[in-house]
């Protein structure tokens, strides 16, 4: 619990605030002491907790898989190698079913997305107060006011993290579109659908309408991709926090919600991966 006796609102707000490092107009480069200070820092601030956990989890994922890859033998696979091969084959099959173009990037990309997002989501199942309290003790040890040490453990409940990934995917989508269809093809995709006409004059009238529609379609992809993951995990985290307020009854509730949430985090990681593959295959395929 944050501080001495926080009200439920304070408790929730405290839990939903990231550990932000940035340049405050008044205090200079520092860690934000409140939500207000954090927002005053503007764009040039960074969430240390989000970055830290996501990078750490990514490194863990890559280390485990790299180790399995190095030890990989053609004989009978043992425990870790078996698991890794299972994941790799699962992702590879998903990619092969959906994506019919040729690309060396897309399968490892999908594997990375699935495992990384899953691990980041998995942090949601760590009891909500456990790591923040550790962080407060740690911060207090270094002289910070424990009440103002914010710590958000689940990177995917940070909209920056999910949008960061979805925008990277979006950049890849555009790159693949241009590579497959050329720049003119990309522009044609944006302006010649869904309305077209053999008459040049009417076609010219359709172009702006098409562009607006297609631009919305195109931009909706990364935004929905990022916000879907964020929304699901944010809501899940919020419910964990709310459950944590109700006192002793939180134990069965917590357990029930965690079991349910186990499904959600796996599903969301899978959805993020599948949608990435689908968007990329749409980028490559001709209409």
């Amino acid at each position: 619990m944050a501080g001495t006796n926080p009200t439920p609102t304070e408790y929730i707000q405290h839990h939903l605030q990231n550990l932000t490092f940035g340049r405050h107009p008044e205090h200079g480069w520092s860690i934000a002491h409140s939500a207000q200070e954090a927002s005053e820092m503007g764009f040039w601030a960074i969430h240390l907790d989000t970055m830290g956990w996501s990078v750490a989890l990514g490194v863990i994922f890559l280390m485990i898989f790299r180790k399995a890859g190095m030890m990989a033998t053609t004989g009978v696979p043992s425990g870790l190698q078996n698991f890794v091969e299972l994941m790799v084959e699962f992702v590879d099959n998903s990619v092969k079913e959906t994506f019919h173009g040729k690309s060396r990037v897309i399968a490892p990309l999908s594997l990375t997305i699935f495992c990384w997002v899953f691990l980041m989501n998995l942090m949601d199942l760590v009891p909500v107060d456990f790591l923040p309290m550790l962080a407060q003790k740690f911060g207090g040890f270094f002289g910070a006011d424990p009440e103002h040490v914010y710590f958000k453990v689940v990177p995917t409940t940070d909209v920056n993290a999910t949008l960061g990934m979805s925008l990277s995917v979006f950049a890849l989508v555009i790159f693949y579109t241009i590579r497959a269809k050329g720049f003119t093809g990309f522009i044609g995709d944006l302006t010649l659908h869904p309305f077209n006409s053999p008459n040049k004059l009417i076609q010219a009238l359709f172009v702006p309408v098409n562009f607006v529609l297609e631009a919305v379609t195109l931009l909706a992809k990364p935004i929905s991709l990022g916000l879907r993951l964020f929304g699901n995990l944010y809501a899940g985290e919020l419910i964990f926090i709310l459950i944590a307020i109700v006192g002793l009854w939180q134990l069965p509730l917590h357990f029930t919600w965690a079991v349910f949430h186990l499904l959600v985090i796996t599903l969301q990681a899978f959805i993020f991966m599948m949608l990435t593959i689908v968007y990329l295959s749409m980028a490559v395929e001709q209409h």
Binding site: L16, N18, T20, G22, A38, S39, M41, G42, F43, W44, A45, I46, H47, T50, M51, D158, V159, N160, A161, L163, G164, L167
Partner: peptide, 8 residues
């Protein structure tokens, strides 16, 4: 929930 450098 501010958009900031974390995104990049």
């Amino acid at each position: 929930m501010n958009l900031n450098l974390t995104l990049i």
